[in-house]
Design a protein around this nucleic acid. Structure first.
Lengths: 98, 98
DNA sequence: AATTCTACTTTGAAAAACAAAGTTATGCCA
DNA sequence: TGGCATAACTTTGTTTTTCAAAGTAGAATT
């Protein structure tokens, strides 16, 4: 009955929702790409990334493009699962409403 | 491209999402029903209701059951529209991810 | 040598969420 | 009629979260 019990608190926020979907749609996502995509400041994005990292939903990969540092992010298996569950809960809610 | 630009900030929060879907699924919804459905305290629920009211997404109807006061809530046309848009944006995001 | 860029971290402020207690109005029961 | 209960809040104050701005480190570019 409770329409929200399966929603994940970590994904409550627009920006984190956006990060997760960007990470799932694109295989390679770096900091600046996300920053511009979502229109957020450095610090703000970094703190959202940190919260997703702390939840073990994403991993950071530090590499290079040529000789330049390049940090990319990817979703962990548990992050993928958690996000899928969240989306399913959202869909279930939407189905109820329709 | 930006996956979140059409999401509505007012509906960012689980509880407000739950309130809206409960109001759309059930024709008559009162305070205590919502309170128990969502598992929140009086004050917390009241403040979420207030924010939805201030956004003109819901209306309060004060009535009676017999001689007892009974406050019911319903979604306004603009609330319905805004929520539908939000759900559509969510669905679009989900479609991208799938 | 100085500036620029990337990817942050730190700091601090503002906003939001929340619980608990208080409030008002009515109802019920003895 | 007095006392307790219930509904639906409001108020108060704390905690948490969000966010921008500034600072930083390390590499690159000029």
């Amino acid at each position: 009955m409770n329409p929200i019990e399966h929603l994940n608190k970590t994904f409550d926020h627009r920006i984190r929702l956006g990060i997760m979907s960007a990470l799932l749609v694109n295989e390679e996502v770096n900091f600046n790409f996300l920053k511009e995509l979502l229109g957020v400041t450095d610090g703000n994005l970094a703190s959202h990334m940190k919260s997703l990292e702390e939840a073990k939903y994403i991993k950071v990969k530090k590499g290079f493009i040529g000789r330049k540092t390049n940090t990319t992010y990817h979703v962990t298996p548990s992050g993928e699962k958690a996000f899928a569950n969240h989306l399913e809960a959202l869909e279930a809610m939407i189905r109820q409403v329709r």
